[in-house]
Write a protein that binds this DNA or RNA. Structure first.
Lengths: 211, 211
DNA sequence: ATTATCTATAGATCTATAGATAATGC
DNA sequence: ATTATCTATAGATCTATAGATAATGC
């Protein structure tokens, strides 16, 4: 997930692969234990990368884990983005985001654990899904679809509720995830000023699949 | 914060003090860096406790940090509990909880950082504030004050939004905390079925102080 | 010639424990 | 006599780096 230009030659490709292998290992560790005290040796071994290579890419463990969280949040944003393309109604976008997130608890469990453990501090980040969500909220408020709130407050409430859905899915896999997602999405839409009937209707619209 | 009986003699008191000093140090570390890789030596030193004493109280660092999180969440629950005593209306309890939490960002910043970083996984815990919040939600639903939701979904949304308020307060200390709290509380109340007018009114009622 | 990876290692740090010390209970 | 703390330490582990190795660019 390089912010810079894509690697052109084999050197750069291999370098990018090593870096990504380290990030992947860090993401696994974050999801499994949430504990960042694993040794660099253990991380390199898990990434199947020579120990010394670590220092070619990161100055410290903290730098690696920060990059791993960013990487995970970016991926989350991209997966959601891809699947809501073509949806215009801001309310429907919110509902789709909730329902897709619930499904990702099954399809991307590692990512969801990181989101649960680290997402809250990034709700107002200028990376990942947040800026796009903020834009959609602003659009909804401007058009009158959403009422009685300002964008910042709405983003907080929306983000917090979305993360609580993630936590609920992970803590209670026995519950029906789709139903929980629709219920929480409907509550958020009510919170954003929609009537109960409108909110309910929006959360029942058909949704494109998630691999 | 011993779950067992309070210490009776000087031995037990001193033992409890040492344990609490270790927990206090762990809480500080959680709040400052959120990183659990500090050495046991460093933790003991910060707690002003002999190094070997650590093992009289905890088997591992993980055990200590788990205890520290529990300790912090219990304290959060207790502070809120004390200040909402006498409030009967479930809607007013919700609003008071939000407003008190916003104030705690100033009065208990360490606690709030731990809540932000670790709270989400404990929303449905059977300790701390959660069981009481669940009871209040059930009461509100039974009495018809809250409509259109079940207690579990409501607890998720309420907890997530409360934590997003904590994150917002910590990330944006420039914003007016009381206003943010009232805004978010009003949104949650709307989410729980109150009209915008009722929600607004409830969040404007006078609130007992926080030391 | 350049670049990244890998192996080996010195020195620092950490964990867990053993045994000494200090304080209290009975 | 009992209990908890504290100090000292052995052995293990970790970090950061230096230098060798392997692969590609030009």
């Amino acid at each position: 997930m390089p912010t810079s230009a894509p690697p052109r030659n084999r050197f750069e490709r291999r370098r990018a692969e090593t870096r990504q292998a380290l990030i992947r290992a860090a993401r696994q560790i974050l999801a499994e234990t949430g504990d960042t005290s694993a040794s660099i040796q253990a991380i390199a071994e898990r990434a199947d990368v020579g120990f010394g290579s670590f220092y070619n890419h990161f100055d410290s463990k903290t730098a690696l884990f920060d990059a791993a969280v960013t990487d995970a949040l970016e991926e989350f944003g991209q997966v959601i983005d891809e699947h809501v393309e073509g949806i215009d109604d801001p309310a429907e976008l919110v509902a789709a985001g909730f329902r897709l997130t619930a499904r990702m608890a099954d399809s991307h469990p590692e990512l969801m654990r990181i989101l649960r453990d680290r997402g809250l501090a990034h709700i107002h980040s200028d990376r990942g899904l947040s800026p796009r969500a903020l834009r959609d909220l602003e659009r909804g408020i401007a058009s009158g679809r959403f009422t009685g709130t300002d964008p910042t407050t709405a983003l907080s409430a929306l983000g917090g509720t979305l993360l609580s859905l993630v936590a609920l899915r992970l803590a209670r896999p026995d519950l029906d995830g789709g139903e929980a997602a629709s219920d929480l999405a409907a509550m958020v839409l009510r919170m954003l000023g929609l009537s109960s009937e409108d909110a309910r209707e929006v959360t029942r619209r058909p949704l494109p699949g998630l691999d």
